[in-house]
Amino acid sequence: MRPLLEIENLRVTFPTARGDIDVVRGVSFTLGRERLGIVGESGSGKSMTGRSILKLVRAPGHVTADKLAFDGIDLSTRSEKQMRAIRGARISMVMQDPKFSLNPVMTIGEQIAEALLTHKRLPRREVNDRVHSMLESVRISDPERVARLYPHEVSGGMGQRVMIAMMLIPEPDLLIADEPTSALDVSVQAQVLDIIDELVRRKGMGLIFISHDLNLVSSYCDRILVMNTGEVVEECKAGELMKAAHPYTRGLIASIPRLDETRDELPVLDRSAWAKA
């Protein structure tokens, strides 16, 4: 079977006063209908990797790749107009903070319907039914009431569930979740991730889960890429993360405090050891 996404030698470059800086340096991976996690610290290029798949890197940023293909479509030659037909309908993205990604002057129902109507013409009755059933599937118990609310009237956890509903209603093949739960607390985090997980499995979609939280990624993904300064330093199965070989990955794992913590001091990453400037 053809992989859903093939990326070879992806580079993202930003020009600066001191010459060009590569924030992503030659990343390659393929993705089937599976759950892939990308982990790294801030500045490791993980979000830029996610954005360049949707061609959302703004100028002066510049994306090059030997191959950037989604379901057989070569994304690098697509025009903006052709990309708009892919974004949302085939590949969609859940961003970090629902407070900034939802339109504050549209009701939740209207926003979700808009996501659907951009790609398909449907009678209004059917749109309403689909919006309600989508809200139900992200475990919002009274969809009729919530659809009439504005984003400021719902909590962070509910806002993020609305985002997920909006992203999944056109039934895309690939979902990119960029730190989908960093703005939420632990108890709500688990709920939101369980919802993403269930929907992704049920619809047989591909998922790219971008996060800085190793534990979270390893419990929700099949495969993990660890990124540091724009490069993939390690690739492993989620269950084998504890056996990771690269010193950077091991350092990240060791720096997380544990529930039954006995260490007096947490080990800190020695960045100079492997950072090639």
């Binding site: 632990v186 688990a190 534990n215 979270l216 544990r258 529930l259 039954d260």
Partner: peptide
């Protein structure tokens, strides 16, 4: 550390944290 919290709500919080630790 021993997982010995008494209230059911505290235990619930603890289980959520433990579920994410590997």
């Amino acid at each position: 550390k021993r997982g010995d919290l008494k209230e059911s709500y505290s235990r619930e919080l603890m289980q959520i944290s433990a579920a994410h630790a590997t």
